[in-house]
């Protein structure tokens, strides 16, 4: 059972998190033409890297989406990046 760090809530049990996609994937701008290939890549292509991976995760109870860098072999969490600007507490 892993522990992941939510950038806002801190270290929590993995059961509080969901995987939300690979980091760095942009939704194609559908206000213009999007080729079939680009759309398909957006929906279906995953690098699914062995070892170091960067992924978007969501901490379910607080619904914060963030980027987590982790090693998919050792299960080590290498760090997180918050997607929201920092605000005073």
């Amino acid at each position: 059972m892993q522990q992941f760090p939510c950038p806002f809530c801190g270290l929590r049990d993995e059961r509080e998190f969901h995987f939300a996609g690979e980091a760095g994937k942009m939704r194609p701008d559908t206000s213009g033409e999007v080729t079939q290939t680009d759309w398909s890549r957006y929906l279906n292509s995953y690098k699914n890297r062995e070892g170091k991976a960067s992924e978007v995760w969501v901490h379910l109870p607080c619904q914060e989406y963030f980027i987590m860098h982790r090693d998919t072999l050792s299960m080590k969490v290498l760090g997180t990046e918050q997607l929201r600007r920092q605000e005073e507490i």
């Binding site: 806002f8 809530c9 801190g10 270290l11 109870p61 607080c62 507490i89």
Partner: peptide
């Protein structure tokens, strides 16, 4: 020992 910015938490699911 593990502080948290929030009080939200999954309890028994």
């Amino acid at each position: 020992g593990i502080p948290s910015g929030s009080v939200v938490r999954v309890f028994h699911g």
